[in-house]
Amino acid sequence: MSARTDTEAQETQAATGITPSTLSTIIKTKLEASHVDIQDLSGGCGQMFEAIIVSPQFTKKTTLARHRLVNGTLKEEIAAIHAWTPKCYTPEEWEKRKAG
């Protein structure tokens, strides 16, 4: 489902309650994330998100395990959207990435 107009986009977000802000709050709370940046790539309809998530809970986890952790945390929210792309980093990895 994608919105064709701004009105449809607002209605979709209102119906699902999913916004970058709500996703960010859940991730920060449940995954103890120190940095969360969520971009709505769907033009405001709340159906396609890309996220950068930095959490110490990712330490010693593979990329797949990190994605499973995030997806499990956002199970209900992900079910209501079209596309979700998380990029998961430990605090150490994030610092190296920012420095480089």
Rank of each mutant, 00 (worst) to 15 (best):
G100F: 03
P20D: 07
P56W: 12
T59Q: 13
P56V: 10
A65M: 07
T12W: 08
E32I: 14
G100K: 08
K60L: 04
M48G: 07
L23A: 06
E76S: 11
D40R: 06
D40C: 05
E92A: 14
T25D: 13
A9K: 04
H67M: 02
E95I: 04
E77D: 14
S34W: 04
L41P: 03
K30G: 03
E76Q: 13
I78P: 06
K98F: 00
R97M: 11
G43P: 08
A79S: 10
L23Y: 04
P20L: 06
H82E: 13
M48N: 13
I78M: 09
I81K: 01
R97G: 03
P91C: 12
E11I: 12
S42E: 08
T12C: 00
C88S: 12
E77F: 09
L69A: 08
T85Y: 00
D37C: 02
H35P: 00
S24K: 14
G44N: 05
A51P: 00
I27V: 15
I27R: 03
A99P: 06
E50A: 15
T85E: 07
A14L: 07
I53Q: 07
R68M: 12
T12M: 13
S55Y: 06
T63F: 01
M1C: 04
P86D: 02
F58K: 01
T22K: 05
T90I: 10
E76T: 13
Q39T: 15
L31W: 07
D6I: 11
D6E: 12
P86M: 02
A51K: 00
T5V: 07
T5G: 08
V36P: 09
K98S: 00
A79F: 01
I38P: 03
E32Y: 10
Q47D: 11
G44F: 07
A65V: 09
A15E: 10
G43V: 05
E11K: 05
P91Q: 12
L41E: 15
I78E: 05
E77P: 13
P56M: 06
E11F: 00
A79M: 01
L74Y: 04
Q47S: 11
K98A: 04
Q13L: 11
I78D: 02
Q10P: 03
H82I: 04
I26E: 06
S34C: 08
D37A: 08
L41C: 08
A51D: 00
Q47F: 10
V54G: 07
K87T: 12
T22Y: 07
G46M: 05
K96Y: 09
G44Y: 10
K61Q: 14
I27G: 01
S42H: 06
T7S: 10
D40H: 10
S2A: 03
S2L: 05
F58M: 01
R66L: 02
C45H: 12
Q47N: 13
G72Q: 02
Q10N: 11
W84F: 11
G44A: 10
W94R: 00
I78S: 06
V54D: 09
I81G: 00
S42D: 09
A65I: 09
K61Y: 11
P91T: 14
K87M: 06
T73C: 13
E77Y: 10
Q47R: 14
E32A: 15
A51E: 00
